[in-house]
Amino acid sequence: MTPHEAKGATQYTTYHPRWYRTRVSTYWWLGKWYYLKFVLRELSSIFVAYFVVITLLQIHSLSRGPEAYARFEERMRNPLMIALDAITFLFVLFHTITWFNLAPRAMVVRLGGKRVSEILIAGSNYVAWLVISASVAWFILR
């Protein structure tokens, strides 16, 4: 075989044999804490969307008058709703923590040619979170 022919043989074609892939179980993420954490983090998005829906319902009832708003508040006092909101709170907290811990890897900050440490970036995110949460609570409750 000449070198030219050998080169030709390794060229890509649109045809290839079927790849060998073992079938992955639907429950692949249950085996390891690391995988489970990943799936729980992704599932937190459902609770994020759920609370947006609650907020939209609240705005809607607000626009329909005092009786409608009282009905909304009454429904929020249902023990099942409170249980669901407690779970939602935990999932969204999980989202917040995983999001801030990943932030230093998604956003590399350099100051004076040196990489700012991960703890500093994550830490400043947590501080911002506390300040913003306190401000929002103050604005609503003042």
Binding site: I82, F100, S133
Partner: peptide, 22 residues
């Protein structure tokens, strides 16, 4: 959306989902 949810949602859920109803 991830940033908004991480920064703002916990306090909203705490107030409107737990603190007020309870």
């Amino acid at each position: 959306g991830g940033v908004v949810a991480a920064l703002l949602m916990p306090v909203h859920i705490f107030l409107f989902g737990l603190a007020f109803p309870l």
